[in-house]
Computed example of a mutant assay.
Amino acid sequence: ADAMNEGAEGAIRTFTEQFHVPVITTYKAKGMLAEDHPLSLGGAGLSPLADRTLVPFVQAADLILCVGYDPIEMRPGWRNVWHPDQQRVIDITAAPNHHYMHQASLNFIAHSGATLAALGAGIEGRRTWQGGEVEKAKEALATAFPTDEDWGPAAVMDTCRRVLPQGTLASADSGAHRILLSQMWTCDAPRALMQSSALCTMGCAVPMAIGAKLASPDRPVISFSGDAGFLMVAGELATAAELETPVIFLVFVDGSLALIEKKQRERQLKTAGVDFGRHDYAAMGRAFGGNGVSVRDRAGLEKALKEAMEADRFTLIAAEIDAEAYDGRL
């Protein structure tokens, strides 16, 4: 997002609090407003389930501010979700709108933060959304993405978020887990969750995590991968070992290209080319000189995470989950 590249998070927070404006970010701009802030509605763009709450919320606004918004990051469901003849829309971007995924009433081609500051200068803010709409939207999102399951992908993400401290850097590979993670992994700062953009690159999470640890050696770093994406880049564990980067590599093990398998079933197609064996990923971690452990419950995962944070080498945690565990969750 332009706003993230321009370092506009301070200006966004100031404007948000001055005018009581709720904020929805793209999934790559998560943390531009800390996601525990009362006016943050988290990241959008990947989850149809989240869109059921967020799209109608946006359509109910009388003014929409697009601040460095790059719609290439969004699902097609966000194409032309508003109409400038029905809603006031201000678009602040670093480049002209050549994508035509949305239109605006007014366009500024300028720095996001400086433009927000200029728009708000000398104006006294007032409370908006006084019917509790923001709180209701937050409650609807919390209901849509519960954290109380005994075991499964949401339990894995919830446990990791609770155990790992604020300031942890995370990377997400492409796949079903990324859609859920983008809703459940709360970020208190920009770039706290690194992921691919619209190209949906498989295998990116592992090398991104290694790079993040090299750049920020004092911060915990965890990568989240599906088993298929991890297998594409398993050799990068050698790099992690040789560079002595104590990264936590978490692999969701369900023996499937879960997102593609899910889409095939939803289209009533015979599944093809999406299932494979459940390999011993923990043994792969140990074979490359790191630690490796398989977990099948919250207690085992919590223990593995705490030990990984104290380790002097990388740790691969293989989280064994059921097939079709993402059904109804995305």
Rank of each mutant, 00 (worst) to 15 (best):
Asn80Arg: 13
Ala323His: 08
Thr14His: 15
Trp151Gln: 01
Phe276Ile: 02
Glu17Lys: 11
Ser225Met: 11
Tyr69Asp: 11
Leu180Val: 04
Val134Gln: 09
Phe145Arg: 02
Asp70Leu: 15
Gly113Lys: 03
Ala137Val: 06
Phe19Cys: 06
Tyr69Ile: 12
Arg162Cys: 02
Lys213Arg: 12
Arg219Asn: 10
Ala50Leu: 05
Gly328Ile: 01
Thr159His: 00
Ala228Gly: 14
Val21Gln: 07
Asp312Glu: 12
Arg162Phe: 02
Glu320Ala: 03
Ala240Leu: 06
Leu141Gln: 03
Ala118Thr: 07
Ala198Trp: 10
Phe276Met: 03
Phe108Asn: 07
Val221Phe: 09
Ala142Val: 06
Arg162Thr: 03
Ile321Tyr: 01
Pro165Cys: 10
Val233Gln: 08
Gly229Asn: 08
Phe252Tyr: 07
Gly277Lys: 11
Ile12Val: 12
Asp70Trp: 14
Glu9Ser: 15
Phe145Ser: 01
Gln103Asp: 15
Ala144Pro: 11
Val295Asn: 02
Ile321Met: 04
Glu244Arg: 09
Lys303Glu: 13
Gln59Thr: 08
Asn107Cys: 14
Pro71Asp: 08
Lys303Trp: 07
Phe314Gln: 02
Arg127Tyr: 14
Gly292Asp: 05
Ala50Asp: 04
Gly43Trp: 07
Asp188Lys: 10
Gly273Cys: 02
Gly152Glu: 00
Phe249Ile: 12
Leu243Ser: 10
Gly77Thr: 13
Ala121Glu: 14
Gln103Glu: 15
Ile90Cys: 09
Val23Asn: 11
Gly42Glu: 10
Pro246Val: 06
Leu214Gly: 11
Ala311Asn: 10
Trp151Lys: 01
Asp322Gln: 10
Ala198Cys: 13
Thr315Ile: 08
Gly77Ala: 11
His177Phe: 04
Ser216Phe: 14
Asp158Val: 00
Gly125Ala: 06
Arg219Gln: 13
Asp254His: 04
Thr143Ser: 15
Lys138Val: 06
Met184Tyr: 01
Ala299Asp: 13
Glu307Met: 03
Ala11Trp: 05
Pro71His: 05
Asp62Leu: 00
Gln166Ser: 13
Ala215Tyr: 06
Thr16Ile: 10
Gly289Thr: 04
Ser294Phe: 06
Leu231Gln: 11
Leu305Ala: 05
Gln264Gly: 02
Glu266Tyr: 00
His99Asp: 11
Gly255Trp: 06
Leu65Pro: 04
Leu46Lys: 03
Gly7Leu: 02
Lys270Gly: 10
Ala283Pro: 10
Tyr27Gln: 14
Val21Trp: 12
Leu330Lys: 04
Leu46Cys: 10
Asp322Tyr: 03
Ile64Arg: 03
Ala234His: 09
Ala176Phe: 00
Gln18Asp: 15
Ala50Thr: 01
Phe145Leu: 03
Pro48Lys: 00
Asp158Arg: 00
Asp85Gly: 06
Leu330Gly: 05
His177Asp: 03
Ile64Leu: 14
Thr271Pro: 06
Ala308Glu: 07
Ala94Glu: 13
Leu106His: 14
Glu261Cys: 02
Thr128Cys: 12
Ala140Cys: 09
Glu149Ala: 00
Val293Cys: 07
Val274Cys: 05
Glu35Trp: 09
Ala154His: 00
Lys30Trp: 11
Ser197Asn: 13
Ala34Asn: 15
Arg13Phe: 13
Asp322Glu: 14
Asp254Arg: 02
Leu169Arg: 08
Asn291Leu: 07
Val163His: 04
Thr147Lys: 01
Thr115Trp: 07
Ala1Tyr: 14
Phe108Ile: 09
Ala11Tyr: 04
